[in-house]
């Protein structure tokens, strides 16, 4: 399955680094005259990275699959149990809840994140003083430790926290944002968007910066409405950046862990429990490393599937030629 996504990934690699004008197809070597390859030298240069890559990425990935076939405690010896972990997983109601929560989180978070990021980065292209400074401001929470960020949100959103006392001054009785299952996931999403949409502001700003001024000027002269300008000129021109941010934001969204862990502990009930939080707890709190690995593999497959779908869909709307 992973292989089927490959052309797409390469396509995105151009979106990843627009600065690399040279396409990543043929790579000339300085020692072009030689007939033989540079096998031994290459080995020397690749050895550190490749050893680590195999040891810390490939082996664990396969290892994860192997571990998922065992009942594997933190202390003591593992027992082979075949697919029992997977059987248990598909009969575990929490698994479905957690999967659903994570999918809802991922889609809502990605949509709101991109909409806001696009809005702000468009705003930053208008006539503004210190536009660079504002861009950095929106970026701030993205590089401060998420644990610290989540803590202040927990304080502000708690039952007698700032938000509710502010609402109180307007005579509105605020909800228990973190304890009410109707609002808890929303609170987690809000905090997460605040935390990280600044990244996408910067990526999209770079994309917007790449649009030739003349094109926009010309469209203004034509009397095109702002909406049409956005719809037919700007969006298609930044579609590679949009696609890239969408893909990466979505992958990031499936990894959500700190926010529910600090804000709600996954509660109330399971309403904010996410895939990675459940995985972490099964492995390192409930002492079921095998079950956690089965979860990890499902996560892997889900993320790959969604990424593959995004790549499949990109042909419809992403425009790579400038």
């Amino acid at each position: 399955m992973a292989i089927s996504t490959s052309p797409g990934v390469i396509a995105s690699s151009e979106a990843v680094a627009p600065a690399a004008d040279q396409p990543a197809v043929r790579i000339p070597t300085p020692a072009g005259k030689k007939k033989k390859g540079d096998g031994l030298t290459a080995l020397a240069y690749l050895a550190p990275g490749f050893t680590g890559f195999v040891f810390f990425i490939v082996v664990p990935l396969i290892g994860s699959l192997v571990i998922s076939l065992f009942e594997w405690p933190l202390f003591g010896s593992p027992t082979f149990i075949g697919f029992a972990n997977y059987e248990k997983l598909f009969g575990d109601p929490t698994f479905y809840t957690v999967l659903l929560n994570t999918v809802i989180f991922a889609f809502v978070y990605t949509a709101v994140n991109l909409a806001l990021a696009l809005g702000v980065s468009l705003w930053l292209t208008t006539k503004l003083k210190f536009s660079g400074f504002w861009r950095v401001i929106f970026f701030l929470p993205a590089i401060t430790p998420m644990v610290a960020n989540a803590l202040i949100w927990r304080l502000m959103l708690s039952q007698d926290g700032l938000l509710n006392s502010l609402l109180g001054t307007f005579g509105i009785e605020g909800a228990s944002w973190l304890s009410d299952s109707r609002f808890a996931l929303l609170a987690v999403i809000t905090m997460s968007v605040w935390q990280s949409f600044g990244y996408n502001v910067i990526v999209l700003s770079a994309g917007l910066g790449g649009i030739p001024k003349e094109i926009l000027e010309a469209s203004r002269v034509d009397g095109t409405s702002a909406w049409n300008r956005l719809r037919f000129i700007i969006l298609p021109m930044i579609s590679p950046s949009l696609f890239f941010t969408m893909t990466m934001t979505m992958i990031g969204a499936f990894q959500v862990f700190v926010q529910p862990q600090i804000l709600t502990q996954g509660g109330p009930g399971e309403s904010t429990n996410t895939f990675v939080l459940y995985l972490y707890r099964n492995g390192f709190v409930f002492d079921k490393l095998g079950y956690a690995s089965a979860l990890a593999w499902i996560l892997f497959i889900v993320v790959m599937l969604i990424t593959a779908l995004q790549f499949a869909g990109q042909k419809k709307w992403v425009n790579y030629d400038k």
Binding site: S176, Q265, G269
Partner: peptide
């Protein structure tokens, strides 16, 4: 031996019990 899990789940679900959204019967069952 599974008490850590019981404790974690009670922290998550208890909130709903105290708020009257779920009964003890439902929560203990879960």
């Amino acid at each position: 031996p599974t008490w850590n899990q019981v404790e974690t789940l009670m922290s998550q679900y208890g909130v709903e019990g105290y708020r009257g959204e779920k009964t003890a019967d439902e929560i203990m069952d879960t």
